[in-house]
Write a protein that binds this DNA or RNA. Sequence first.
DNA 1: GAGTGGTCTAGACCACTGC
DNA 2: CAGTGGTCTAGACCACTCG
Lengths: 245, 245
Amino acid sequence: MRRMVSESPTFSPLYRQIKGLILQALDGGEWRPGEVIPSETELAVRFGVSQGTVRKAVDELAAENYLLRRQGKGTFVSSHNDPRAFFRFLRLQRLNGDVETSRSVPLECWRAKAGQEAARMLGIQLADPIIIVRRVLEFAGKPVVLDEIYLRGDTFAGLSLDTLREWQGSLYGLFESRFGARMVRAEEKLRAVAADRTAADLLKVQEGSPLLSVERVSYSYGDRPMEWRRGLYSTAEHCYVNELG
Amino acid sequence: MRRMVSESPTFSPLYRQIKGLILQALDGGEWRPGEVIPSETELAVRFGVSQGTVRKAVDELAAENYLLRRQGKGTFVSSHNDPRAFFRFLRLQRLNGDVETSRSVPLECWRAKAGQEAARMLGIQLADPIIIVRRVLEFAGKPVVLDEIYLRGDTFAGLSLDTLREWQGSLYGLFESRFGARMVRAEEKLRAVAADRTAADLLKVQEGSPLLSVERVSYSYGDRPMEWRRGLYSTAEHCYVNELG
DNA sequence: GAGTGGTCTAGACCACTGC
DNA sequence: CAGTGGTCTAGACCACTCG
């Protein structure tokens, strides 16, 4: 690994190049979610830089939730099956602040062709194969969230209602373990909407009552969109929490 | 500055102690928002540590939005009057993703005594003085947000409707410049609610139509709550955007 | 005790800003 | 040009984990 000469308008420090190489290895599956990656000194030798430079690269990757550092043990590939990550993408609490565990109840799962909007959101071509999942999330036995989920057909080919029913754990954990699709970040758009007939029935609220609409696009490595979903949240007893820095 | 001996269950690295000292200086008003703080080497001399240690302290403070680094120029105290910070606490966009500027239209501003909830949220005693502000936020001339804002009476003593009307810029900018109250972070709870009569009138929507309710507590240095507000957002043409890491 | 990440230092050099 | 933050290195030592 040679230092990129400076003198350039597109200057990229060494540690960012190392970061890129580590990302590449992660994307290529060299280390799987939940596993340890080599120690900093090993990586330093491998890339021919000092340990401090590797350190800075790993620091950034850890800050961006790709990696998880644990003093004395090593650095691990982030996993949605790690209990620590369970609430990373689900920001729902009771109104009083209590955090409950949820249960996913899959309703439907079918194959379709991408329409205009799904194609744009998933970065695929019109009429490319997609898979659509509908499910309800229950908290304390009560339905709170109705999700409609659009997935790239190529990546999630074998997904079925049975698979969804058997799986214990979060959907993202399933995507990661069974399909090698590791969601790294997501963008959400929130609005308030009125419940239509079917949503009202499934969430056991009155037709026309206000629901929180959460539209989300989830990305894997390299900003590849993998999932587009729309959730309707009943906020009678729950709320979506957010932290502003 | 001597290194804290280890052997302790409450081990705190040197750079965190330096971070605390810098925070203390910021809180004490040694440097004002928008100003430069001393260079890293100056701070290193002042605190009797190496430049690298100061660097790590400043890094964390910059990551938490207390400070803003600018290569070649120096490190600055964050300010809500800096254009860069205008959208830090207002996550509203057009549905198509465009970001518009907003105009604040103050409606009312009166003194009151803290009730049960306001007292708890603001960390003050029941019946302590508070100030309540109501205002509408307009985007492209249309009302989109109705805010009801509860402020600590001690800190915001002189606030009046005239002050609010004269001020050009964000409320947080006003709080910072005129009252020395610098909001550093905030916690929000989002729900969907039905518009009541007055909200419907002010936001020019139908009574009962769904609105996004955003309840926010804003904190200053040392996690001191300074403001509690509830916003009702009309999401017909706008949405609240969020990024999940 | 060996191995990991975490802290701290000192020094050299680079990139950016403004005079 | 001087001054700032940004990068990179090498080495010493500390805290944590586990066998």
